[in-house]
């Protein structure tokens, strides 16, 4: 499971749905106001598709309908992009290139190798039952987002200190970078399965 992927999609969904909702409110509100005669009682008696509109479209039909079709296709593609984003909010990374100091040039590593190393280190820590990690794209400094199923009876601040002292230091040393960040999403787990109130 990727760290925070659903939340990223949730945030984007929230923005898009807010914009769509506001657009519908504006269009519906204006239409209702027009229908109730807010723009003139006589206008409210006219048909929805007036002769003026009809003749305008007829006069401009050489470009009007092709443009409408092109805009529809463009918007449809954006909708499909949105759908794809919901299914896969973060693109997968292959090789990861980053600067490793002024005089040492560029370093290329497999992102999966970095993620595996961090997961392995995290799972070796006392109290950690399971872990996952993902290298953040285009992050400076190098950032690994990790999640851990952590024993709820263990002390979280102590664990975070150990991560900073050991895992982050090892990562910096292995990749020869001056700075690296490991962000943690802690998910407490306990061994007991009991009667929870529904």
């Amino acid at each position: 499971m990727n760290v925070g992927t659903n939340r990223r999609a949730d945030q984007v969904n929230r923005r898009i749905l807010t914009i769509l909702g506001l657009l519908l409110l504006i269009v519906g509100g204006l239409g209702m106001a027009y229908s109730l005669g807010a723009f003139g009682k006589d206008r409210a008696k006219e048909p929805v598709l007036t002769d003026d509109v009809r003749s305008f479209v007829a006069d401009q039909q050489r470009w009007f309908w092709p443009v409408v079709a092109a805009v529809a296709v463009l918007l449809a593609l954006l909708c499909l992009r949105w759908l794809y984003f919901q299914l896969k909010p973060r693109p997968s990374m292959g090789d990861f290139t980053f600067g490793s100091g002024e005089d040492r040039g560029q370093t290329v590593v497999q992102s999966a190798a970095v993620e595996r190393a961090v997961v392995s280190d995290l799972e070796a820590e006392p109290g950690v039952r399971k872990a996952g990690a993902r290298l953040r794209q285009h992050a400076d400094p190098l950032t690994v987002d990790a999640w851990v199923d952590y024993d709820s009876s263990s002390h979280v601040p102590v664990f975070r200190e150990r991560v900073q002292d050991h895992i982050v230091s090892d990562l910096q040393g292995a990749l020869e970078v001056d700075q690296a960040v490991v962000t943690l999403e802690v998910r407490p787990v306990s061994g007991r399965i009991g009667d929870r109130v529904k």
């Binding site: 999640w147 709820s152 979280v156 975070r160 200190e161 943690l184 999403e185 802690v186 009667d195």
Partner: peptide
């Protein structure tokens, strides 16, 4: 979670935290 120098930045997930507290009470 508290932002202290020398600690990896962290957040705590709500749902597993609630489950852990429930189990702790039980």
């Amino acid at each position: 979670l508290e932002d202290q120098p020398g600690m990896a930045p962290a957040v705590l997930r709500r749902k597993p935290f609630e489950r852990a507290l429930t189990d702790e009470a039980l």
